[in-house]
Simulated scan of single mutants.
Amino acid sequence: MTAQLAATVLGTPDPPALADFYRELLGWVEMSREPGWVRLRHPEHERPGLSFQLESDHVPPVWPQHPGVQQMQAHLDVQVDDLDREVERAVSLGATVESHQPQPDGVRVIRDPHGHLVCLFLPGY
Protein backbone atom coordinates (compact mmCIF):
# COMPACT_ATOMS: atom_id res chain seq x y z
CA MET A 1 0.00 0.00 0.00
CA THR A 2 1.16 3.52 -0.76
CA ALA A 3 0.58 6.07 1.97
CA GLN A 4 -1.10 9.35 1.00
CA LEU A 5 -1.85 12.41 3.05
CA ALA A 6 -5.66 12.51 3.19
CA ALA A 7 -6.33 15.65 5.21
CA THR A 8 -5.15 18.20 7.69
CA VAL A 9 -7.34 18.53 10.76
CA LEU A 10 -7.61 21.71 12.84
CA GLY A 11 -8.98 21.68 16.37
CA THR A 12 -11.40 24.47 17.16
CA PRO A 13 -14.13 25.37 19.65
CA ASP A 14 -16.53 25.97 16.70
CA PRO A 15 -15.93 23.66 13.70
CA PRO A 16 -18.76 25.05 11.51
CA ALA A 17 -17.61 28.66 11.92
CA LEU A 18 -13.97 27.88 11.16
CA ALA A 19 -14.95 25.68 8.22
CA ASP A 20 -17.01 28.56 6.82
CA PHE A 21 -13.95 30.84 7.03
CA TYR A 22 -11.75 28.40 5.10
CA ARG A 23 -14.50 27.55 2.61
CA GLU A 24 -14.67 31.23 1.68
CA LEU A 25 -10.90 31.79 1.82
CA LEU A 26 -9.99 28.79 -0.32
CA GLY A 27 -13.10 28.44 -2.48
CA TRP A 28 -13.44 24.81 -1.36
CA VAL A 29 -16.64 22.82 -0.97
CA GLU A 30 -18.12 21.26 2.12
CA MET A 31 -18.26 17.48 2.06
CA SER A 32 -19.80 16.78 5.45
CA ARG A 33 -21.01 18.60 8.52
CA GLU A 34 -21.69 16.73 11.73
CA PRO A 35 -21.78 17.85 15.33
CA GLY A 36 -18.17 18.48 16.18
CA TRP A 37 -16.77 17.77 12.69
CA VAL A 38 -16.73 19.48 9.27
CA ARG A 39 -14.80 18.37 6.17
CA LEU A 40 -13.85 20.53 3.17
CA ARG A 41 -12.13 19.67 -0.09
CA HIS A 42 -10.99 21.32 -3.29
CA PRO A 43 -13.87 21.43 -5.79
CA GLU A 44 -11.95 19.26 -8.28
CA HIS A 45 -10.05 16.90 -5.95
CA GLU A 46 -11.26 14.51 -3.26
CA ARG A 47 -7.99 14.59 -1.28
CA PRO A 48 -6.20 16.08 0.49
CA GLY A 49 -8.91 17.82 2.44
CA LEU A 50 -9.14 20.17 5.38
CA SER A 51 -11.22 19.13 8.37
CA PHE A 52 -12.25 20.79 11.62
CA GLN A 53 -12.87 18.93 14.85
CA LEU A 54 -14.37 20.13 18.10
CA GLU A 55 -11.79 20.97 20.74
CA SER A 56 -13.61 23.02 23.33
CA ASP A 57 -10.37 23.72 25.22
CA HIS A 58 -8.38 24.82 22.13
CA VAL A 59 -5.54 27.21 22.97
CA PRO A 60 -4.06 29.16 20.03
CA PRO A 61 -0.26 29.13 19.75
CA VAL A 62 1.89 32.08 20.73
CA TRP A 63 3.68 33.76 17.81
CA PRO A 64 6.54 34.21 17.66
CA GLN A 65 7.08 31.25 19.91
CA HIS A 66 9.09 31.25 23.10
CA PRO A 67 9.62 28.74 25.92
CA GLY A 68 6.84 28.09 28.40
CA VAL A 69 3.85 28.90 26.18
CA GLN A 70 1.65 27.02 23.72
CA GLN A 71 3.94 26.23 20.77
CA MET A 72 2.87 26.23 17.14
CA GLN A 73 2.60 22.59 16.08
CA ALA A 74 1.81 23.29 12.43
CA HIS A 75 0.58 26.05 10.18
CA LEU A 76 -1.04 26.26 6.76
CA ASP A 77 0.72 27.76 3.73
CA VAL A 78 -1.68 29.25 1.17
CA GLN A 79 -0.32 30.47 -2.17
CA VAL A 80 -2.01 33.58 -3.57
CA ASP A 81 -1.62 35.68 -6.73
CA ASP A 82 -2.11 39.09 -5.11
CA LEU A 83 -0.82 39.23 -1.54
CA ASP A 84 -2.31 42.57 -0.51
CA ARG A 85 -5.74 41.74 -1.93
CA GLU A 86 -5.83 38.29 -0.31
CA VAL A 87 -4.68 39.60 3.07
CA GLU A 88 -7.46 42.19 2.90
CA ARG A 89 -9.99 39.52 1.92
CA ALA A 90 -8.85 37.19 4.72
CA VAL A 91 -9.23 40.03 7.23
CA SER A 92 -12.74 40.76 5.90
CA LEU A 93 -13.56 37.08 6.60
CA GLY A 94 -12.34 37.35 10.20
CA ALA A 95 -8.56 36.81 10.08
CA THR A 96 -6.06 39.06 11.82
CA VAL A 97 -2.60 40.05 10.58
CA GLU A 98 0.25 39.22 12.93
CA SER A 99 2.51 42.07 14.02
CA HIS A 100 5.58 39.80 13.73
CA GLN A 101 6.35 39.17 10.05
CA PRO A 102 9.52 37.08 9.53
CA GLN A 103 9.90 38.12 5.87
CA PRO A 104 9.59 41.67 4.54
CA ASP A 105 8.16 40.70 1.14
CA GLY A 106 6.10 37.97 -0.45
CA VAL A 107 4.68 36.40 2.73
CA ARG A 108 2.18 37.55 5.35
CA VAL A 109 1.47 35.68 8.56
CA ILE A 110 -2.18 35.84 9.58
CA ARG A 111 -4.35 34.10 12.15
CA ASP A 112 -7.66 32.53 11.26
CA PRO A 113 -10.63 33.51 13.46
CA HIS A 114 -9.72 30.80 16.02
CA GLY A 115 -6.02 31.61 16.25
CA HIS A 116 -4.37 29.09 13.89
CA LEU A 117 -1.42 30.55 12.02
CA VAL A 118 -1.57 30.77 8.22
CA CYS A 119 1.07 32.06 5.82
CA LEU A 120 -0.26 33.68 2.67
CA PHE A 121 2.53 33.76 0.12
CA LEU A 122 3.25 34.71 -3.47
CA PRO A 123 4.62 32.16 -5.97
CA GLY A 124 8.37 31.83 -5.56
CA TYR A 125 8.39 32.34 -1.79
Rank of each mutant, 00 (worst) to 15 (best):
M31T: 11
H42M: 06
A74S: 15
L25Q: 12
P61I: 01
V62M: 07
L117N: 07
R41M: 01
P48G: 03
S92H: 03
V91Q: 03
Q79K: 05
V78K: 06
P102C: 09
R85D: 14
E88Y: 01
F52E: 03
S32I: 12
V62F: 07
T96L: 10
P48C: 00
H100G: 06
H58M: 00
V91G: 07
P102E: 03
R85H: 12
A95C: 07
G94Y: 11
L76F: 03
S56R: 14
Q4K: 13
H75W: 10
D77G: 14
Q65Y: 13
R41Y: 00
R111P: 03
G27T: 06
L120E: 05
F121A: 10
P48Q: 07
Q65T: 06
D81S: 13
Q101R: 07
L18S: 09
D112Y: 00
H75T: 02
Q71P: 09
R85M: 06
T2P: 07
R111G: 00
P123N: 09
L117Y: 11
S99G: 12
L76N: 05
A3C: 09
P64I: 11
Q101G: 10
V91F: 03
R108A: 10
L40A: 12
P123E: 01
E24C: 13
A74Q: 13
P64T: 10
V118T: 04
H45Q: 15
R89P: 01
R47K: 05
V107D: 08
D20I: 03
Q103E: 15
L40C: 04
D20F: 05
R41N: 14
G68D: 04
Q71V: 00
V80P: 06
P123H: 04
I110W: 02
E24V: 01
